[in-house]
Design a binder for these strands. Structure first.
Lengths: 221, 221
DNA sequence: CGCTTATTTGATCTTGATCAATGGTAGTGG
DNA sequence: CCACTACCATTGATCAAGATCAAATAAGCG
């Protein structure tokens, strides 16, 4: 069920659960490389990995679960910037060697690889084969954020909720039930909607037979 | 008045108008390196640099003027994704060696440096000092797009228009008049608003004394 | 079981879109 | 220089999507 981690580094030389679950490239994870057990971080729900303005020291690759990036405005409003799922990167601004400008927090129980920015920088400096892969990664991220922007700009409430449900369903097919890992409130914050609207849209889709809903169990029909 | 180009390459060895206007790093621009006159491209208003789905061959750095990235949806609606101004990059997806997934078009008369993706890739492979600078660039781009997302998600019409006006005013101070380089319609498309709304907001700000408006001449008060 | 947190549903309100009409401005060619 | 034209900007009236306010369940969970 785990997705491969998109990474910018070479295959791990020794046993590593991350690689063993099918990834092409390994991340230079402090835990992975120093430890034969490849002890990634396991996070409980609601655990923050870092807060806005924290000194930016590490980059994270999500192995399992969902995190979210948020930013707080001067007036206290919180905006969820994006959902970070399996195989995606968080905190790349650490490579700029300054403070994080977003907060990153686990929404579900999650497993992440933690890589120090220093390690990444060293690797970029010394390994000829890595920079292009890293650049490719970042451009893919850029693509993803633009995609979100496109969504927020043009899609109405129902389209956005459908897109989110599709993403959260992963590779679950039609007719197969899956469990929503997020609450209506969390979904609404990520989509820039009110939670009541998310609820109404989901009920509406159910009434029209697009999906079947049993609490947090959803089936596409 | 020109902004420095953010670039990932070393200082130009010989005379180059781009560098001479104060940039730290030069872009490996086909025109610049092959030609002592450093003949960047000059674009007329409304000139497209590339269209969606075109083979992605070049990366562009804006020297002067404003361009916009757009994407067309299946139903024909066009979404403006972002404004690309002096010092910023467009078309970085060319490094992925596939097709452009956005269109890039000049909104005003503009000057850009054109760099072949091949050149950039070669430089990343062979020059030890460049990758980190390039990665830094991309992360800054990522930051900018997230910023847009933040805007679109949390700001209301007036806040968005104000943010755009602030950006377009550049380093013009309070009390100094500047000329809007974009029409109300173009602004509205970039902000995801109706052009009537942009007009109303601008008039409203003028009525309340925040700005002074004379057609496309604007003064912050 | 009792408490907290999620979810659903209804009623009403606000923002900004849309429709429609008019006035301005800049560029073009005579 | 002026008239013509095409685009740009403003303003008003109305409408709709979704936010907000309010309240009643439902679902977890110690």
């Amino acid at each position: 069920m785990q997705k491969p981690i998109r990474g910018w580094f070479q295959p791990a030389p020794s046993s590593c659960p991350v690689r063993d679950r099918g990834i092409r490239l390994r991340t230079v994870c402090e835990e992975c490389s120093g430890n034969p057990q490849c002890g990634q971080l396991t996070l409980q729900k609601r655990t923050p990995l870092y807060l806005e303005q924290d000194p930016a020291t590490h980059v994270f690759a999500v192995v399992q679960g969902y995190l979210r990036e948020t930013r707080t405005m001067s007036d206290g409003r919180v905006q969820s910037l994006r959902l970070v799922g399996p195989g995606e990167l968080g905190g790349v601004e650490a490579l700029l060697d300054r403070n994080y400008y977003t907060a990153l927090e686990a929404l579900t129980e999650a497993v992440v690889c933690r890589v120090s920015a220093e390690t990444v920088r060293d690797t970029l400096r010394t390994r000829v084969d890595q920079p292009l892969a890293m650049v490719t990664e970042l451009i893919a991220e850029l693509d993803a954020v633009r995609e979100s922007l496109h969504w927020v700009g043009t899609l109405d409430a129902e389209e956005r909720v459908l897109a989110m449900l599709a993403r959260l369903s992963g590779d679950t097919g039609r007719g197969v039930e899956f469990k929503l890992p997020l609450t209506r409130l969390e979904i609404s914050e990520l989509l820039g909607l009110a939670h009541e609207t998310v609820s109404r849209v989901i009920q509406g889709l159910a009434r029209r037979g697009t999906i079947r809903v049993r609490g947090r169990q959803i089936t596409f029909l």
